[in-house]
Amino acid sequence: MTAVAERLSAIDAAIADAARRAGRDPAEITRIVVTKFHPAALVSELYGLGVREVGENRQQELSAKAEALAELDDLRWHFIGQAQTNKAGAIRRAAQAVHSVDRLRIAEALDRAATDDLLLDVLLQINLTDDPGRGGVAPTELERLAEQVLALPTLRLRGVMAVAPLDEDPAAAFARVHESAQRLRAVAPGAEWISAGMTGDFAEAIAAGATHLRIGSAITGPRPAQG
C-alpha cells in the first residue's frame, strides 16, 4: 500500500468513526480530496484508489488539472476557493460544483457562462467572522442571496459552505452553520448539502450535520514547495 493509500484509508476510517459517534450513516458523507499545488499525477493515483470527488481553490490549477485528466469522465471537480467574476467561465467549464458563491455578481457570472444544458451545483458560502472582507455572505443576507440564486436557470442551489474561524471552537461555529442550513432549506427545500469540516475539525462538522468534507494534506501529504 502506498503512502497516499494509507493516508486515505486512515482518514476514511476516522470519518466513519466520527459519523457513527454522531449517530449518522458514514455513507451520507462525501469526502472531497483537496489537491492544491499537487500535480495531476496525484489526482490520477487517487482516482485509482476510488476517489471521485476532488477540490481545488485556484481557477488556473483547476482548469489545468481538469483538462489533463479529461478522460476520467466520472471525476467530479469542486471549486472551493474565492471566485472572481472574470474567471467564472473558466471555473464553470472545469467544475461540476462551486462551493464559494457569496454574492449575486458571481452567481450571475456563473449562470451566464453556461454553454450546455447541464446544471451547475452551487453552494452559498457563509462568513462566520465579523470581518466583512472575508469570503462569504453575512448570515443575515443568506435568504436574500438564496432567492436570487434560485432565479438563475442554469444553477442548482445545493446548500451552504463555511470555514470555521481559527479563534472559535469549531463545534460552536458549525452549530451556526447548521442553523443557517436550516434557514436556507425554508427557502430552498432541496438545498441539503453542508460543506464544512477540514482535517482538523471534520469530527465537529460531522456532528453538526456536514454532508461534504474538504480534506487536503492529511490525504495528499505535504504540499510541494512553490517557487
Results as ranks from 00 to 15, higher is better:
52 R>H: 03
55 G>A: 09
82 Q>Y: 05
69 L>D: 08
45 E>G: 10
69 L>T: 09
30 T>D: 09
25 D>Y: 10
174 F>G: 00
47 Y>A: 14
222 P>H: 05
109 A>F: 09
191 A>P: 00
209 G>W: 05
194 I>R: 01
105 R>E: 14
44 S>L: 15
40 A>N: 10
206 I>H: 02
139 P>E: 11
105 R>K: 15
95 A>R: 09
142 L>Q: 13
46 L>K: 01
63 S>Q: 14
65 K>R: 10
17 D>L: 15
222 P>M: 10
60 Q>V: 11
24 R>T: 12
220 T>R: 08
20 R>A: 12
51 V>Q: 12
30 T>E: 07
222 P>Y: 03
106 I>M: 06
120 L>Q: 03
175 A>H: 02
196 A>Q: 00
161 M>I: 02
92 R>C: 06
189 P>I: 04
37 F>M: 15
172 A>C: 07
67 E>V: 15
74 D>R: 07
92 R>H: 05
208 A>V: 05
179 E>G: 06
153 P>H: 02
178 H>C: 01
164 A>N: 03
121 D>Q: 12
208 A>R: 05
74 D>H: 09
54 V>C: 03
128 L>Q: 01
160 V>S: 00
76 R>F: 10
152 L>W: 06
55 G>T: 11
115 T>L: 14
168 E>Q: 14
55 G>W: 06
12 D>Q: 15
181 A>K: 00
81 G>L: 07
104 L>M: 12
101 V>L: 08
37 F>E: 13
175 A>F: 00
143 E>N: 15
90 A>I: 08
202 F>M: 02
110 L>E: 05
72 L>C: 03
107 A>C: 10
40 A>E: 11
37 F>N: 14
70 A>N: 12
216 G>C: 10
28 E>F: 02
101 V>N: 04
200 G>I: 15
62 L>Q: 10
85 T>S: 14
142 L>Y: 05
198 M>T: 03
152 L>E: 03
81 G>R: 02
98 V>R: 05
8 L>K: 15
137 V>Q: 11
218 A>L: 07
79 F>M: 13
28 E>G: 06
158 R>M: 03
4 V>M: 04
108 E>N: 13
182 Q>F: 00
175 A>C: 04
154 T>D: 04
145 L>N: 12
214 R>T: 05
151 A>N: 01
154 T>F: 04
183 R>G: 03
213 L>T: 01
35 T>K: 13
54 V>W: 09
161 M>Y: 01
20 R>M: 08
142 L>F: 07
111 D>C: 06
204 E>D: 13
111 D>P: 11
148 Q>I: 07
208 A>K: 06
62 L>K: 13
2 T>Y: 04
156 R>T: 00
160 V>C: 01
89 G>L: 10
11 I>K: 09
24 R>S: 13
58 R>F: 09
88 A>L: 13
214 R>A: 12
126 I>E: 07
132 P>I: 15
104 L>D: 09
172 A>P: 01
212 H>I: 00
20 R>D: 12
167 D>G: 05
131 D>G: 08
63 S>P: 04
81 G>A: 04
212 H>S: 00
159 G>E: 00
32 I>Q: 11
